[in-house]
């Protein structure tokens, strides 16, 4: 299952909720303000790194670039373009946008 997060983890708890609710082996895609979770030095970085043991983490490249943070993506996070976003949705039987 794919979990789509569009909120900064320092503003809202959607990523926290995913990490405590979702069954492992899933994928997390960070889009819009969600991409801030995938930046080096962010207070959320240790939590995201711990989550990588359970989830494959992706971030949308266009949203990273728009926010000037494409050069500080946390190691282990895979960046995708919109085509990659489509593939993630297609390759997971279900998805949930954590609005």
């Amino acid at each position: 299952m794919l979990h789509i997060i569009n909120k900064s983890p320092l503003d809202r708890n959607s990523l926290d909720t995913v990490l405590t609710t979702a069954v492992g082996d899933g994928a997390i895609l960070l889009i819009e303000d969600g991409v801030y979770a995938a930046t080096k030095g962010n207070a959320y970085e240790p939590k995201l790194k711990a989550a990588m043991a359970k989830f494959k983490v992706y971030a949308l490249q266009a949203d990273l670039e728009a926010r000037g943070i494409a050069d500080r993506v946390t190691d282990g996070v895979t960046t995708v373009d919109y085509a990659g976003f489509v593939d993630l949705v297609a390759n997971n039987k279900t998805n949930q946008s954590w609005l």
Partner: peptide, 15 residues
């Protein structure tokens, strides 16, 4: 954990 499992069993999740 139970809720996470239930989510995996769905066909459509609307938030």
């Amino acid at each position: 954990a139970e809720l996470g499992k239930l989510m995996e069993e769905q066909d459509v999740l609307l938030s």
